[in-house]
Design a protein around this nucleic acid. Sequence first.
DNA 1: ATATTATGGATATTAAATATCCCTATATCT
DNA 2: AGATATAGGGATATTTAATATCCATAATAT
Lengths: 162, 162
Amino acid sequence: MILKSQVEWALHCCAILAGLPEGRYLSTKALAELHGLPKEYLSKALQSLSQAGLVHSTLGPSGGYRLARPPAELNFLEIVEAVEGKSRTFVCDNIRANNPCRPKGYCDSSPCAVARIMWEADEAWRQKLRSVTLADLGEILSRETPPAIWKDTFDWVLKRAG
Amino acid sequence: MILKSQVEWALHCCAILAGLPEGRYLSTKALAELHGLPKEYLSKALQSLSQAGLVHSTLGPSGGYRLARPPAELNFLEIVEAVEGKSRTFVCDNIRANNPCRPKGYCDSSPCAVARIMWEADEAWRQKLRSVTLADLGEILSRETPPAIWKDTFDWVLKRAG
DNA sequence: ATATTATGGATATTAAATATCCCTATATCT
DNA sequence: AGATATAGGGATATTTAATATCCATAATAT
Ligand code: SF4
Ligand code: SF4
């Protein structure tokens, strides 16, 4: 059970977009080049973000993406779910229904304990992701990234931002 | 990102084994029949449990599996990891290393913030699963399952236990 | 007008999950 | 001793999901 690589891509792209000045856009091409990713495929991830309403897009030359909201109001869970989907990691195939000791047509009113416990674990995972915003990430990154690289990257991005 | 169906199978099988009297064994055949599962494939899941040391097996007629430890000392995480593996759900492909603004040969000393945050969420998931034992599950199931079904299933299992 | 971009559909490629089959060693029963 | 039932493990097929590319279209800036 491994998350799609698009999750990592989306998170990094959002981290970059979070540093973009108000009103500027950054294209798929620039984001793909910056991260060394296949442009066409990365495009699908960005489209997922767009469909989820997390980023805003614009067409034409100097077009691209920007965040739809301030970084402090965009959390990890939203980004992860946008590309990975909202479905739970544990799917219940209801195998207990096959138990030959159960009367025919017997219908369990509620999901069984196994499923509920697994879903609670899922929820703990979600809760952690919900608690971290892009603003939090930006604060950590700016603290940990060597200033020279940080500045070079910022300049590189600005030069290509529409 | 969805867990293997073998996870559900393993959890249910362990729940049944937890109700088995001391020293008795239950075969793959019986467990497959009880849950309506493909015997050969379920066998792989049970072998994973065996390799992880969670269950003990014995050969020959009247052979099968029993828990290697008391239900109170066997938690969900151990069972899930036995069949699903211990690897984290977020794999870091280190795409930031492709950043053209980074000096050639520059090596990040530690995993970046994105990966660390995702791994913390994984750990929250694990911690929840670690906190629930088979004894906890048995207590819930015995409370929620209609007594008639509970007893029929117990009898059905005992009749087939070696 | 021309160039550049996001979007979405179609399709190919690769990897993983699911499932079955068969052989071997071991234990139980008669 | 011999027949039978079992776990274990290797090989392999089948199905599904992830990864990746390609192309046509509409919108936008210069
Ligand atoms: S007991 Fe729970 S987890 Fe198991 S099959 Fe039924 S609903 Fe699914
Ligand atoms: S920044 Fe973190 S998550 Fe992103 S590529 Fe680097 S290590 Fe992986």
